[in-house]
């Protein structure tokens, strides 16, 4: 039960949505752009989320795109995770997505919703960080196309009036070898203790991590160390631990020290499984 009232809009064109957002913001109404609504429902009922207006973007065609063009895979922000999994155009994303929440919830949770979530795991962003994807954003001044590395720092840095439209990933990455492991406090359900995704591009390994810090990240420094062939595997792993961003999460899922132990094991597993030369 949400005990607060809010205005609900469901525009059918992008133009309408952008204008609506601008107007509502001019009126200083706290506005939320959503599609599935899972976070508003689940956090709103315990007073952790509140809004005065909602713009539901699930009828906007551009937000529902899913397909390949000449160069890229394009995924709309309002696609549900189950829809993306079923189409399986991006196996790494399918794998990450399929372990988020549960199947029922994933029928509602959208790609954009997970990436822009308040709950900080935002695991769906990991494949896009690994593939240097482009983020397509609609705003009052038109469409912007930005590298994910320029706009995603801990979370998606949307400006006032911006709506996340699509994510574009170069086709050449879609077939690259990958490994994605979600380690939980216990067994197969629950938030990640650590989710790590790795992609092998040529001989280089790329990794992106969620659940270790209160935000997902991909770190160039970490990758340089992992790919440094002058170091042994253990040296690489031990050095990586020293350069990781902070703070390391210390919560009911696991202590920080234990997370370090888990991460070291995962790195070892990834390096060995993807046969990175050491």
């Amino acid at each position: 039960m949400l005990s607060f009232d809010f205005d609900y809009y469901k525009p059918v064109t992008l133009k309408e949505a952008v204008q609506l957002l601008e107007t509502l913001e001019q009126q200083e109404k706290k506005t939320m752009v959503f599609s599935g609504g899972t976070e508003l429902i689940t956090l709103g009922r315990i007073d952790l989320s509140i809004t005065e207006a909602v713009i539901d973007i699930k009828d906007i065609q551009e937000c529902r795109v899913m397909g390949l063009n000449e160069k890229n895979l394009v995924l709309g922000s309002a696609l549900s995770l189950t829809k993306i999994e079923k189409a399986n155009l991006f196996p790494l994303l399918t794998k990450v997505s399929s372990e988020i929440a549960d199947h029922t919830a994933r029928g509602k949770i959208t790609l954009g919703g997970n990436i822009c979530a308040k709950i900080f795991y935002r695991e769906a962003v990991l494949p896009f960080l690994l593939t240097d994807s482009q983020v397509i954003i609609a705003g009052a001044k038109g469409i912007k196309v930005l590298s994910i590395h320029d706009i995603f720092h801990e979370e998606l840095q949307l400006e006032k009036g911006d709506i996340l439209l699509q994510l574009e990933t170069e086709k050449s990455f879609l077939g690259s070898p990958f490994l994605c492991i979600k380690r939980r406090q216990q067994w197969n359900s629950g938030y990640p203790l650590i989710t790590i995704c790795a992609l092998k591009v040529g001989n280089e390994i790329r990794v992106a991590i969620s659940g270790f810090c209160p935000f997902p990240f991909r770190s160039k420094v970490v990758e340089e160390i992992l790919n440094n062939d002058r170091l042994s595997l253990e040296e690489r792993i031990n050095t990586v631990i020293e350069v990781l961003p902070g703070p390391i999460l210390n919560d009911v899922e696991g202590s920080s020290k234990y997370r370090v132990f888990v991460l070291k094991n995962l790195l070892r597993e990834i390096m060995m499984s993807l046969k990175v030369e050491v």
């Binding site: 406090q185 234990y258 370090v260 132990f261």
Partner: peptide, 20 residues
Amino acid sequence: LPLTPELIWRTKGGEENAFL
């Protein structure tokens, strides 16, 4: 209880050997 992997790690002395 509960018998989590972290409990086993801690019982095996993982915490003392860990560095942060």
